[in-house]
Nucleic acid binder design. Sequence first.
DNA 1: CAATCATATAAGCAATTGCTTATATATTTT
DNA 2: AAAATATATAAGCAATTGCTTATATGATTG
Lengths: 108, 108
Amino acid sequence: MPVATQLTDVLKTLADPTRRAVFERIAREGEIAATGLVQGSKVSQPAVSQHLRALRDAGLVAERREGRHIHYRIAPKGLGPLIDWLGHYETFWTERFANLERLLKESE
Amino acid sequence: MPVATQLTDVLKTLADPTRRAVFERIAREGEIAATGLVQGSKVSQPAVSQHLRALRDAGLVAERREGRHIHYRIAPKGLGPLIDWLGHYETFWTERFANLERLLKESE
DNA sequence: CAATCATATAAGCAATTGCTTATATATTTT
DNA sequence: AAAATATATAAGCAATTGCTTATATGATTG
């Protein structure tokens, strides 16, 4: 998949506040099953399921099946295209701005 | 405006490939008038104008009028909400990942 | 196997988006 | 002031999005 397409997918996926809230909650919890995410959510179970699919398709979360539960966790590499892209604009910020692109590669 | 709303606006604005291409072109050129952006664009003048409005509303570009031309340039601070938000996930990458949030504030 | 629990998919719908063509508003030039 | 140039706005439209309810699939339990 082209890099620009991946970036578009990541941006589109995170742009929706409800979906981003799901992502943030997974990040806070470390690992959480879909059921847990539905509880305390403003939207229905299918809506959460659809958001999880979008997050997975964008490479932003990974899942681990345990019996009938599916536990979700953040997939840090999914943010890669975004970090890379922002890296192109780091000079707009400051010379002391870390080279995100390099750090990303080192952390693999 | 709430922080989450600003972030949503920035993400939504950058998520569209055509609009992001406009942003990237402005960044490459340093400063460029709307006319210049329309030339070599796949979309019409009104479409470019609408994208420029969206970018301005999101705080991602600034403009400078010179006669009947309006010159656009990147507004680095517009990326702030995105940098801040990503900063919350830096620990997912590496401890050596720079503290983007702090650097952002220092660069003001 | 039947009932239950967890998650996913289908279908439909209102709202939003990004584009187009047509037209309006500035600003400059002649 | 009239014509030309640069940009913005209006209106309309097809495509996409995010949600809902209803139903299907998967996995466990009794």
